[in-house]
Simulated assay, not measured.
Amino acid sequence: MTPDILCIGSVLWDIIGRSNAHMGKGSDVPGRITRIPGGVALNIAMAAKAYGMTPALLSVVGRDAEGDELIAAVERLGLLTHTLYRSEDLPTDVYMAVEGGNGLIAAIADAHSLEAAGDKVLRPLEDLDFTGPIVVDGNLTQDLLAGIASDPEFDGTDLRIAPASPGKAERLLPFLTHGSATLYVNLEEAGLLLHGPQPDAPTAAVALRARGLYRALVTDGPNLAACAHPGGVVSSQPRNVMVTRVTGAGDTFMAAHIAAEAQGADHDTALARALEAAATYVSGDTY
């Protein structure tokens, strides 16, 4: 199979504890704990596959039992794994989150193996004659992200950039002057990149474009979302839903937007489809 989208970044196990109860510091409540394939790059790839695309993964997975199980699970989903770097001495990464009825309570991302592998995860690009969208996630090291942003080999490439979390958003600063990168952020992450709080998504998206970014998509939970592009700015209101899960919602939004554009959708339609996909995701049954 030939991929039509490459996803570079974290491929790991998600360990998610969910409860319908509102939670705070020290809460001890009943709920469910699951282990599922995850990571920003993998989440986007899985969603893109569901929308009809053929993703290939560029990341590191250990040659441990957890890694073998993860590879098997990912291949059952129909994703291409021959581009993964399998490390003999690095363990498979893991993400752990606790979600309550009031949203994400806390999360820890152990992506140390991805950071340690560095540019080894990019080696398959040397053998791929690829011109489609390339997803890059902010779990890569700051040096590697800066290298991608400044590498002439990526000039004109359809880069789609995803922050791993608000805590890693500033790693993406080098892409603000990239001539063909599309940045997907929430309002908090946009504020961090712009070094100041932003009042709403359209304002933030336009401000990111003003910094030199080719295109910016900014979401703000249940509030207006926006896409600022070379021709102007479009915005759309998400559908109001009951939130039952949040981990992976931004990845679903991004994958749906990329898939919509691959099918020929214009800026307005692609944004609307992405918001609807995210709304459906967050309102879905818990795992």
Rank of each mutant, 00 (worst) to 15 (best):
K25D: 13
G26I: 14
G26V: 15
S27P: 15
S27F: 09
S27A: 14
S27L: 11
D28L: 09
D28V: 07
D28W: 04
V29L: 03
P30F: 09
P30E: 10
G31V: 01
G31E: 00
G31Y: 02
G31P: 00
G31C: 00
G31W: 00
I33K: 03
I33R: 03
T34V: 11
T34F: 07
R35A: 09
R35L: 09
R35V: 08
I36A: 14
I36G: 11
I36N: 08
I36S: 14
I36P: 07
I36L: 14
G38S: 05
G38A: 06
V40R: 13
V40H: 12
A41V: 10
A41M: 08
A41G: 10
L42A: 08
N43L: 02
N43V: 02
N43I: 02
A45M: 09
A45T: 04
A45V: 08
A45K: 05
A45D: 06
M46V: 09
A47F: 13
A48H: 00
K49I: 06
K49H: 09
A50D: 06
A50K: 01
A50N: 03
A50P: 01
Y51R: 11
G52I: 07
M53W: 10
M53D: 13
M53C: 15
P55D: 04
A56R: 10
L57V: 03
L57Y: 01
L57W: 00
L58T: 07
L58W: 06
S59P: 03
S59Y: 00
S59L: 02
G62H: 01
R63D: 12
D64I: 06
D64T: 09
D64V: 05
E66C: 12
E66F: 13
G67M: 07
G67N: 10
G67K: 12
D68Y: 15
D68T: 15
D68P: 13
D68K: 15
L70E: 06
L70K: 12
I71A: 01
I71P: 04
I71H: 00
A72M: 04
A72I: 02
A72N: 02
A73W: 04
V74C: 10
E75M: 06
E75I: 02
R76F: 03
R76S: 13
R76H: 12
L77Q: 15
L77D: 12
L77E: 13
L77N: 10
G78F: 03
G78E: 04
L79E: 04
L80E: 08
T81N: 12
T81V: 14
H82A: 07
H82P: 04
T83D: 01
T83Y: 01
L84N: 08
L84P: 05
L84E: 06
L84C: 09
Y85L: 06
Y85R: 01
R86E: 09
R86T: 02
S87Q: 07
E88Y: 12
D89R: 06
L90N: 10
L90S: 04
L90Y: 10
